[in-house]
Design a protein around this nucleic acid. Structure first.
Length: 407
DNA sequence: AAGTCGGGGGA
DNA sequence: TCCCCAGACTT
């Protein structure tokens, strides 16, 4: 069978509008650019992708070279909306500290959050913890192989479930993360707006059609890795390197010379400005007061259940808190302000240091804080060195301020 | 369908 | 600055 015909059949299977004959001819011509070679050069999508991954893809990452569902799962969760380079700073320490699902299930939520501190999207860590407990309780510590059962675990959606099933069990299921959406949208010249569920659903179906059909135990891990590697290394958002792409010969976006037009995704992100006053209480022993933030609050759920300095929106609130704690006579030393930008918040943080003459004591109550202290005794006197050593689950903004010499 | 949730990297 | 990233969950 001539390879160009096979590629054409695959395109037809995507149920897109028919390819313009000129485009197909161009693709076939490019595929057989070498006149000395009678062998058709254009192998199927999946075969080209797998061959490219083995030759030029990413190898040797800490979560590769294993079919241990625990390690694969952990990596997939950490990598959600997070780049590889960032995860490399967290993954090794996490697996070394909690090397299997049983240990994770038995760990405290605070320890899990501490290992996650600075990585962001902290609900991932709490869902990870709960999912580990479910795996132990419901499946005796063995991850289910069925993607639907995997997706029933907290924090595991369709794409992550398919990734685990493909990497660990050779399941014939496609991922559809942002990388794959871009690769697919370009190769198919898919015009649907990926902000709509209908378009994404269509892309799911087409991604499924392109999956390997043979030798799945070997093919699926390399294919899945290849999709992500291609999106991260070659088919990048701004500067795709089409010369290095194994799919360029019949990439419809490229044939249209509109690679950067895809994927189509409308989005409107509004970022609200917010100013928080931080009360940094320091005692004579060099300890500071940390307060555990509530799960949800009027100021939004950012940094929920992390440890932070008592935070206020108005100076009067801060000063009333100061008085309630019996520190009314001590001078506040305002340290200026700095910005910390999150996806949906533009935070301005204004730390005010309050130096205690003696040791910090247990506090009778913490009234007046914007973040209601509804949990019992949610405050702690913590040596600054312990925070800097990563022993407390604190937001990156707090850690960054301390490292910049805020105290 | 829209809103929410962190932080870092790169152009 | 702005966009993007191995998404999932809630409303």
């Amino acid at each position: 069978m001539a390879a160009p015909e096979l590629a054409a059949a695959e395109l037809a299977a995507t149920e897109l509008a028919a390819i313009k004959p000129a485009e197909l001819a161009a693709a076939a011509q490019q595929a057989q650019a070498s006149p000395a070679s009678p062998t058709p050069a254009l192998a199927p999508f999946s075969e080209r992708l797998i061959a490219w991954q083995r030759r030029a893809g990413r190898h040797g990452l800490p979560w590769q070279g294993t079919r241990d569902p625990y390690r694969v799962w952990l990596s997939e969760i950490m990598l959600q909306q997070t780049q590889v380079q960032t995860v490399l700073r967290y993954y090794p320490r996490f697996v070394q500290t909690l090397p299997n699902v049983q240990q994770l299930a038995q760990a405290s939520e605070d320890q899990v959050l501490q290992l996650w501190s600075g990585l962001g999207y902290y609900s991932r860590a709490r869902n990870l913890h709960r999912a580990a407990q479910q795996v132990v309780a419901q499946w005796g510590g063995q991850f289910p192989r069925d993607p639907q059962q995997l997706a029933s675990l907290p924090g595991i959606g369709r794409s992550t479930a398919h990734a685990i099933a493909a990497f660990c069990f050779g399941a014939r299921q496609s991922i559809l993360d942002a990388n794959v959406q871009r690769v697919m949208a370009r190769w198919l010249a898919f015009d649907g707006d990926l902000a709509s569920t209908a378009a994404v659903r269509s892309l799911w179906q087409q991604a499924h059609q392109l999956l390997p059909r043979q030798d799945l135990q070997r093919a699926m891990p390399a294919y899945t890795q290849g999709l992500m590697d291609l999106g991260a290394m070659v088919c990048t958002p701004r500067k795709p390197d089409c010369d290095a792409c194994p799919l360029a010969a019949d990439c419809r976006a490229r044939l249209q010379q509109r690679v950067l037009h895809y994927p189509v995704k409308t989005r409107k992100l509004q970022r609200r400005a917010l100013t928080w006053l931080w009360l940094v209480v320091r005692d004579a022993q060099g300890r500071v007061l940390l307060q555990k933030r509530p799960a949800r609050g009027a100021s939004g759920g950012i940094w929920a259940q992390l440890y932070c300095f008592p935070s206020f929106e108005e100076p009067a609130q801060l000063e009333r808190f100061q008085a309630d704690c019996g520190w009314a006579g001590l001078a506040l030393q305002w340290q200026g302000q700095f910005r910390h930008v999150l996806t949906h918040r533009d935070l301005t943080l204004r730390p005010a240091v309050l130096q205690l003459p003696g040791a910090g004591n247990a506090l009778p109550s913490l009234p007046g804080s914007t973040e209601q202290a509804d949990a019992p005794a949610p405050w702690h006197w913590v040596p600054v060195a312990h925070i800097l050593a990563g022993q407390w689950a604190v937001p990156a903004a707090l850690l960054g301020w301390l490292r910049q010499g805020g105290l």
